[in-house]
Design a protein around this nucleic acid. Sequence first.
DNA 1: ACCTGAACACCGTTCAAGT
DNA 2: ACCTGAACACCGTTCAAGT
Lengths: 226, 226
Amino acid sequence: MRMVYAPMSTYHHGNLRRALVDAALEILIAEGATALSLRAVARRAGVSQAAPYHHFTDRDELMAAVAEAGFRLLLMRLERVTESKSPNPRRAMQDYAVAYVNFAVEFPAYYRLMFGQRLAERSPYPELRSSVRELRRVFATAVEALQMRGLARRGDPDELALTSWSLIHGIAMLLIDGQMREELGDTSDAERLVREQTALMLHGMVYTSAMSPPPGMAAKRPVRAD
Amino acid sequence: MRMVYAPMSTYHHGNLRRALVDAALEILIAEGATALSLRAVARRAGVSQAAPYHHFTDRDELMAAVAEAGFRLLLMRLERVTESKSPNPRRAMQDYAVAYVNFAVEFPAYYRLMFGQRLAERSPYPELRSSVRELRRVFATAVEALQMRGLARRGDPDELALTSWSLIHGIAMLLIDGQMREELGDTSDAERLVREQTALMLHGMVYTSAMSPPPGMAAKRPVRAD
DNA sequence: ACCTGAACACCGTTCAAGT
DNA sequence: ACCTGAACACCGTTCAAGT
């Protein structure tokens, strides 16, 4: 019974690395982070417990590869937002935030692992680092679009991009930790919450030096809202 | 050589629970999260490996107790800000953010552990939950002060408090992950960065519905900054 | 009531040996 | 070049037994 695309056959000559990452992902999503041992990954990939060491120097390196796959998937989701080419840069930033948070809610264990890994500049995992760089670039581009329309203060877009990422990451974390259950009527409210919080930040982005309140913003002046 | 306060003597009648948490903390801060095994904790506390099970049902429960101690320490730091009674509520929020982020930078492994634990409402660790509730209350009170001065839109302060916490947590995370190294000249720049990012959010808090840009905020209007 | 010693099943990692 | 089997030191957890 020969197969045209013989997908299994590729696994056992040279593709074990990929098979291990896939196995790790399956365990992570199906059984959670607790079950994610190197030995369990090897078992699921159908190899001996020592086999992974021919493709990864240690457990951490495999985990970094898994995290990197997570960043790639997340980046794909965000790319779809880019492709929708929203003419409204504020709406675009909101869409990025929603796509980002949805990913975290869909794969909480995965998202946690991604941020459990050290993402430091001096990290010994160059692929992980470059994925993170790409992620930051998405937010930076969104900020540049805001700046071009006069919707964000001038200056280094990376700085505002980092603020965006900080907020969105924080929302994702607290959401998957159940900290927003009070604010959430049903689960579909999550998107509204993300849009509101992001928009709050978008309004703040207009102002130049954030150190002191800008002229028109004195404490005595009442807020026009209600 | 008898001691007046005999601190050691209390350890071995009834205070082992506390001693274990202390030992865990010492290991965490001195040797990092990798070295933090239940057996290592028992060794450091000078008891057998089975002893912890008379005070905690499992490793997770000990970790939750450690995390809870972390939240208590963090809360103490924030309380100091409250006691300084800044008359400027925006400055107060910035001070909270700085104190919060400083804690994370000072004890990165500790901070990571605190957020590695599930903080969910349905978490089986009631003490952890109530500490988190207290933390949220700090931010909510800060938001209420802003609202009273017309510096934040009306409505549920918990919602804006959650936005504050999200941003500040995100900054702390990315900072200890080395993601702000570019933006940071020297390390003392961290405080300036935190103040700026917090102030950005503070400006956003003025507006009522964040869903669409408010009247005076149309895209054509140039930003007065440079 | 509180702690220990020994045991069980599991883990990360190494390494000589196999093909 | 790639994988295995066996081994080592470690881990979380249980439980009968000790005081």
